Simulated assay, not measured.
Amino acid sequence: MHWFYLGIAVLFEITVAIAAGKARGFTHIGWTAATLVSGGVATYFLSLALLTFDVGVGYAIWTSVAGVGIVVLGALFFGQRLNWRKALGIAAVIVGVVGLNISGMA
């Protein structure tokens, strides 16, 4: 169940980033509310996942997977460029998350 909670936390963390970008410095109330609510939901589900995960490992996976998701979605839907350097960074993050998992720490 802890992986399910972490997955939900990741989805809502991605939502935080997208909504915060649309909030334009918190001047758009709807996007501001979406940012704050999504952040609260993400943190809640992260806290449930951290009942099982080591805090450092769970937090590292959460932020890393969400970061990769944000970069990929930015390239797919928001016209942001995905160059070889970003792709290399994504690969490094994936290797790091897999390394955390196979190390027996998660």
Rank of each mutant, 00 (worst) to 15 (best):
I70E: 05
G79E: 10
F26E: 07
G21V: 04
L11I: 15
L48H: 08
I61S: 02
H2M: 12
I102H: 09
W31E: 03
L88W: 05
G56T: 09
A87Y: 02
V55A: 13
I90G: 02
I61Y: 01
R81K: 15
M1E: 12
T63M: 12
L88G: 11
A87S: 13
A60M: 07
N83K: 11
V65C: 04
G96Q: 08
M105H: 13
G67A: 11
Q80T: 07
V55F: 14
T32R: 06
D54W: 09
T27C: 08
G25I: 04
K86D: 10
T52P: 03
G104Q: 08
A20F: 11
S64M: 09
N101A: 13
W62N: 02
I102K: 09
I70W: 04
F4H: 10
S103P: 00
Y44V: 09
T32N: 08
G56C: 07
L73A: 14
I90T: 05
A19G: 07
R85S: 12
V98N: 10
V68N: 03
F53T: 00
A34F: 09
R85F: 14
F26W: 10
L100G: 01
K22W: 12
G89Y: 04
V71Q: 08
A106S: 12
V55Y: 13
F12H: 02
T43I: 10
L11P: 01
A23D: 04
I70Q: 05
T15K: 09
L6W: 01
T27W: 02
F45H: 03
V71A: 14
I18L: 14
G99R: 09
H2R: 14
A9M: 05
A66K: 00
G74S: 08
G7S: 15
S38F: 06
K22T: 07
E13S: 13
V57Y: 04
A106D: 01
G99H: 07
A23S: 15
A92R: 08
T32V: 08
V93I: 14
L76W: 12
G40S: 11
I90L: 07
A87W: 06
V57L: 08
A75L: 09
V93A: 04
W31L: 08
K22N: 12
L100W: 05
V95A: 15
V65E: 00
K22I: 08
A92Y: 06
A9Y: 00
L46K: 01
L88T: 13
R85T: 12
I61K: 01
K22Q: 15
G99F: 06
G21D: 09
V55S: 10
A42M: 06
F77W: 14
V68Y: 02
R85M: 14
L6N: 00
A92T: 09
L50D: 07
V65G: 00
G69A: 07
G58Q: 02
H2L: 11
S38V: 07
